[in-house]
Design a protein around this nucleic acid. Sequence first.
DNA 1: CGGGCAATTGGTTGCGCAATCATTTTATGT
DNA 2: ACATAAAATGATTGCGCAACCAATTGCCCG
Lengths: 345, 345
Amino acid sequence: MANNKPQGAQRLTLKDVAAKAGVSPITVSRVVNGSAGVRANIREKVEIAIAELGYIPNRSASVLASSKSKLIGVLIPSLSNVVFNDVLRGIYDIATPANYQVLLFNTHYSPEEEERAVRTLLGQSPEGLIITGGEQTPAARAMLQASAVPVVQIMGEVDKPIDINVGFSHFEAGAAVAQLLLNRSYLKIGFIGARMDPRTCQRLDGFEGILSAANRLDKKRIITTQKPSSVAMGASLFRELMTTTQGNCDAVFCCNDDLALGVLHQCKKMHIDVPKQFGVCGFNDIEMAAYAEPALSTVRVNRYNMGSKAMELIFEKINPQTDEASSISAYINTGFELVIRQSTR
Amino acid sequence: MANNKPQGAQRLTLKDVAAKAGVSPITVSRVVNGSAGVRANIREKVEIAIAELGYIPNRSASVLASSKSKLIGVLIPSLSNVVFNDVLRGIYDIATPANYQVLLFNTHYSPEEEERAVRTLLGQSPEGLIITGGEQTPAARAMLQASAVPVVQIMGEVDKPIDINVGFSHFEAGAAVAQLLLNRSYLKIGFIGARMDPRTCQRLDGFEGILSAANRLDKKRIITTQKPSSVAMGASLFRELMTTTQGNCDAVFCCNDDLALGVLHQCKKMHIDVPKQFGVCGFNDIEMAAYAEPALSTVRVNRYNMGSKAMELIFEKINPQTDEASSISAYINTGFELVIRQSTR
DNA sequence: CGGGCAATTGGTTGCGCAATCATTTTATGT
DNA sequence: ACATAAAATGATTGCGCAACCAATTGCCCG
């Protein structure tokens, strides 16, 4: 039995505190909200009453009365993907000190779930929204547009931003990797991708574009799956790549580092020499990339920054510091950077 | 300029929808809440009006009026630690389909931040709380006790649970690792730990207990830091261990797999043969553990389960299915499991 | 075709708080 | 000490919704 909790304790209100402190409810409200204009001795009296009673203000009532929610809604497609950890950290690190709360939804890469989450979220009068990518359903987009709430689309560069867009061009990043591998004189370059969300597809597009321009594109070397990404999946897709191409492949761009780590592992097992015989490039630059054997070449991305910058922009919009109201440009490019280690020649 | 959003659109209310549909507000409310007892034709009329107007109910008003929030508060100490990803996934996977929302707070391993978060959270009339560990401040504990909200403490076994406790004994897990290393005839066994949160300390305690009983404990072989854990930190602490003990050490228990991966990396660099010359055991069994070289022995833990089980217990408490009101035992042991791979003989 | 009953619909009220404006108290200067 | 301004405090009201109970409607049966 774990039922050592009281039942139905009557909720304390401002009035209770006011009675105890011998002031009016509104004065208590002012103390709670830290607004100036309360004499020190009264403030103290009220604070003591609050402490003794253990009063906790009712947020719903406050939001309803003031229509200020101090709430930021965040929609991300996955909780298992480490990438979003860093983004979230960036968001929380800015939001929390400002006394804002974060309501987080996992959309599982589904625009429909995303639409549902947007609807739910807008019901809470959020003061800002951070959403992933630009593939909202028309209905979700319409709600967002109509809402008068600052919206930041993060992660990728988006075609027509709803409001603000913070991220980088996955297309260009994919192209840069293709160019890198070409420059290192790999000739039969493949691609391994899992999950294949919109941003992964953009990387593939950019990648294919460069290869195709160099007359080096062979679609047989592109192995993808809708299943989630993992190290094991990387190893498995690599085996598939080797089978499909009958070994006629000398480098691969993996859509993330987990996959690439799996490829590296599999290469060792198959006695394929990386980077001489075979080049491997990942994406994201997770910590393990530097500690792999050989160390993994990859693409570094400012995940933390995307989150923190998005939050900062929302605050800037809520509370314009500069005179020219919205000097915020629609697209903030957080960039990317090739990190060349030992898995490519 | 990114200011393509309308300003101050008057918020739609039940009344607006009611007027449009030609019914009373309360009927609209019933449709919105999906309660039975609305004739199909009226329901449809209302639904059309909702869709045309794009009405979104105001959650604060609803919570205030009904004191049902459909909100679960979650307090975790870190967003960067992968461990909590899995826990969170477990929580969300149960909460979301039940139409519950999750309000997540990062306490940064600080009981003070935790207390603040508890206060904030209780102001939102949550229907359940999931918090990490049992080291709440007295004030936080008191608020929690007084709140009549189901509280689940997760991750570790807790001395005196506030309400329900889901986790496993880190003490026993640490002891089990010590016993394992002893059994594999390692004699000079060390410990490497970062962050040193309460659960890590419990693992160390259990570990020391066994070594001490076997007369094999040497505190010089225990290297810890308060700094966060990482692969790099593992390598660094290992170097420190080797310096401090002048190489008089033949195995190490790392408080998590990241650290252990760093140790493995450093061993390779220093040409130390794992597992013959030196044994390494990690903790958590993250995916990379199996793909390390040599594959890492570690301790597997049901992280996802801790989250999902915690949520299920909250639902059970909110909405008792069984007749015997609270047949929930105070402590649910999610267990752990030694996973022996190639980094130990 | 009508009586009786269950199912459906609506009116009123209050949830707890903050905005607004009115009132009282305090400080300042002469 | 008094006038005046300035600051602090209080009273009233409404935010949008659901609970509660009352009124109405439709349905089924004889």
